[in-house]
Simulated scan of single mutants.
Amino acid sequence: MYQLEEETEADWWEVEALYDLCFAPGRTALSSYRLRDGVPTVAPLCLVLRDDEGILAAVIRYWPVEVGGQDALLLGPVAVHPTRQGEGLGGLLINESLAEARRLGWERVMLVGDAPYYSRFGFRKLEGVVMPPPTNPDRVLGLDLVRGAWEGVRGAVTKAQA
């Protein structure tokens, strides 16, 4: 049994510790972190999943970005504690947060990740969308939350304007 909740300020250190456990050292040097730097998260979409003892099992975060002057969500990172991997918790967080993003009126979401994993959620390679270097363009994926939302959207991914 798991409890799904919006991430709070009190969760911050624990969430960061899980990201440190799940990702390689230097994760904050990745190009996606430059887009997040100094920009608040989209709080209603940043979720924590705890077991019945209150132990953090999985997390997901989102940030606003702009692509060619259009608003988009940047999904990630999503992390599942190594002892909980294979239980479908990452998929649960992705599906729940995408449903909430639709409900909140977001039109498009993107991420940098593995197409074989994220394609099951409907993500596909984005053509003409350029992440800051160094980013493998084959890993820049997008999902329409509204039909056709990525059509004609091209250009550099930049920080969201306040």
Rank of each mutant, 00 (worst) to 15 (best):
R154F: 06
G54D: 04
S31W: 13
G148Y: 08
D11P: 05
P134T: 11
R61L: 09
S31I: 04
I94R: 10
G113I: 04
A29C: 00
W63I: 00
I60Q: 07
R154S: 01
R108H: 06
R50F: 04
S32G: 08
Y2H: 14
P134N: 11
I94C: 06
W106K: 11
V112N: 08
A101F: 02
L74A: 02
L73I: 12
D37I: 01
V153M: 00
E5G: 11
G142E: 00
E9H: 12
A99H: 09
G128Y: 11
G128F: 01
P133K: 10
T28K: 14
D114I: 11
L30R: 15
A162D: 14
W106V: 05
L141P: 04
D37A: 15
P132W: 10
V153W: 03
E100Q: 14
E14D: 09
A72H: 02
T83A: 06
T8G: 13
L143T: 09
L104K: 00
L49R: 03
P134R: 10
L47F: 14
D20C: 05
V59D: 03
L93G: 01
Y2V: 15
V112C: 04
W63D: 05
G128V: 01
L141Y: 03
E107D: 02
K159G: 08
D138I: 06
I55Q: 04
E6I: 13
E53Q: 06
G26M: 00
G105M: 03
V59Y: 01
Y118D: 04
A10I: 06
G155H: 15
P132E: 08
E16G: 07
V129S: 03
A101Q: 06
E96G: 03
